[in-house]
């Protein structure tokens, strides 16, 4: 492929590190502690203890006490400021509150006409406040990436600790992926026929129910987050019944990467387009349809599907990472 020679594509598919060779890099040097170093450090701390004057000690003690008092004072002052602020807020549930008579009334009155969603809540979170929901989906993605960094197991074991190494430098006792798999096979009962039969019957029902909840997000309570959670639960049940070998045939890290990437990108582009046209008073060209039908309410249905995919993949990825350290 000619296109893949492009530096951007090479970086995008993770083949090469574009920064490699252009930035001055130096591997971290091994820190060795000799006996004379240790003696020096100990000598320093000993002399510090010895040379302190009585007056200095008093001053330090006074400072520590003052510090505590000041901390308490600061916290109390902060709480007081916040409480005073809250006490000036309009009374909860009052009829003449600004929140009560503008925003929510507008949502309730014209939400159905403007968004086309029968369920006002979905119309709110996926139309009026769609960027908020976009942030939530991104938070899920970032959380998975963080857990991946923390819990991911290496393909090969790290070099074993040398004898003279200080404690903080020794590599942690980590398993490789193959070891973790064999351990999963040894320690956890996998070939439970009863569970497999029941899971084979229940998992499709769970998926169908989750898809129903996602697709009816703009008509009835539910939507992307809850439906995605149900599909994720179905995936976890399947994994528990049949083990990692079966799930790895259709769900690996690559699947997760592409599904999340396409969902989040589609969400971002679609919502940017709709906000752009909305802000400039242009015709968006997306039909709202008749309220109450499945194919209605414009962008809300595809956005719900995107959110559902991200949530389902995130649930499964969390479980797999915590169980085995990879998926």
């Amino acid at each position: 492929m000619k296109r893949k020679d492009n530096a951007f594509f090479r970086w995008f598919f993770g083949e090469t590190d574009t920064m490699l060779g252009r930035v001055e890099m130096r591997p971290q040097q091994e820190y060795t502690e000799t006996a004379s170093d240790i003696r020096e450090v100990m000598q320093d701390s000993l002399t510090q203890d010895q040379t302190g004057d009585e007056e200095d000690f008093v001053l330090i003690r006074v400072f520590h006490r003052l510090y505590r008092v000041a901390a308490v004072f600061f916290c109390v002052a902060l709480i007081a400021v916040l409480l005073i602020n809250v006490s000036w807020l309009p009374k909860n549930g009052g009829a003449d509150n600004p929140v009560n008579n503008e925003v929510s009334a507008r949502y309730i009155e014209s939400g159905l006409q403007e968004t086309g969603a029968v369920n006002i809540v979905t119309g709110m979170i996926l139309d009026y406040r769609a960027f908020d929901t976009f942030g939530e989906s991104n938070v899920l993605f970032i959380a998975t990436v963080t857990v991946l960094i923390l819990l991911r197991l290496d393909k090969e074991k790290k070099a074993p600790a040398k004898k003279g190494m200080p404690v903080y430098q020794r590599p942690k006792d980590e398993l490789t992926i193959a070891q973790a798999q064999s351990r999963d096979r040894i320690y956890e009962p996998k070939n439970n026929v009863i569970l497999q039969v029941v899971a084979g019957f229940l998992v499709p029902i769970l998926f169908i129910f989750g898809i129903y909840v996602i697709l009816n997000g703009h008509l009835s309570p539910g939507g992307g987050f809850s439906g995605g959670a149900i599909i994720g639960a179905g995936l976890i049940l399947y994994l528990n019944a049949f083990g990692f070998e079966k799930t790895e045939r259709f769900f690996t890290e690559k699947t997760y990467k592409w599904v999340s990437f396409f969902s989040l990108t589609f969400y971002c582009l679609a919502k940017s387009y709709s906000f752009f046209t909305g802000a400039n008073h242009l015709e968006s060209g997306i039909p709202l349809g008749t309220p109450g039908a499945i194919l209605s309410s414009g962008l809300i249905l595809p956005l719900n599907i995107c959110v559902g995919l991200v949530v389902a993949c995130t649930m499964y990825a969390f479980y797999a990472l915590f169980r085995k350290g990879g998926f």
């Binding site: 009863i194 569970l195 029941v198 019957f201 229940l202 029902i205």
Partner: peptide, 8 residues
């Protein structure tokens, strides 16, 4: 659902 799930 419970007829299936509870015995398991």
């Amino acid at each position: 659902f419970l007829w299936f799930a509870s015995p398991v």
